[in-house]
Design a protein around this nucleic acid. Sequence first.
DNA 1: GTATTGTGCTAGTGCAAATAGAACAATAGA
DNA 2: TCTATTGTTCTATTTGCACTAGCACAATAC
Lengths: 117, 117
Amino acid sequence: MLLRIDPASAVPLFEQLAASVRSDASRGALRAGDRLPAARGVAESLDVNVHTVLRAYQALRDEGLVDLRRGRGAVVTDLVTHYSELGEAIPRLVSTAKELGLGVSTLTAMIRQEYGS
Amino acid sequence: MLLRIDPASAVPLFEQLAASVRSDASRGALRAGDRLPAARGVAESLDVNVHTVLRAYQALRDEGLVDLRRGRGAVVTDLVTHYSELGEAIPRLVSTAKELGLGVSTLTAMIRQEYGS
DNA sequence: GTATTGTGCTAGTGCAAATAGAACAATAGA
DNA sequence: TCTATTGTTCTATTTGCACTAGCACAATAC
């Protein structure tokens, strides 16, 4: 379990952290019952604030990927199996978009639009 | 040509405006040579600032979807044909994500992650 | 019992979105 | 050519969010 961030990116740190976990989930590197590293430890090793890490964890809890409780930490739920199902569809769409010369923000904006309808 | 926004959304107004145009493009409702409504008119009818509309137009210009010049307005380029090619792949992915119970931000975050790799 | 871990609170800083007003420049059309 | 239209550029202000910081609190594990 390794969390990665790019401090220079425009994407918020807490979103990068959550995305890092989701990425592991869709790659099959995470299984139900696995425990994410403690927020305080992550914060120290990445040199970010504890609240920032916890905000990422809470985002993952809101979408049901982890179970979050004090004393115990962040535990991956059964939902993780669903994430790996998207592990094929997403790279396919992204490569298509790249071939067409579409940027990230363009593609995500189109998806947001589609979601709302 | 109808631009729609949701002032209550967390998504920036200028991005919503750009997304609205992209949506029309991918639906085939826009053709090369079509002209977007003047920024001042859009701003007035949607009750937003002119600069906000122009920022959306400039974003569309940066990605090559429109040609932007004073006096003439925003004219849709040939790139619009590419957008319609994604008109099938995106709804398919989105419906899959919805079936899995994934939210918008989750899906877009996963795509951002995939894009960077 | 004690350390660990998330929860909740207040407060401050920095940045981007959005608004506002004005002057300017290129294009279209009469 | 003259005039209205339309995007461009500039400065300035307000607002909200991300992030940091420190602290006390509560639940869980060992």
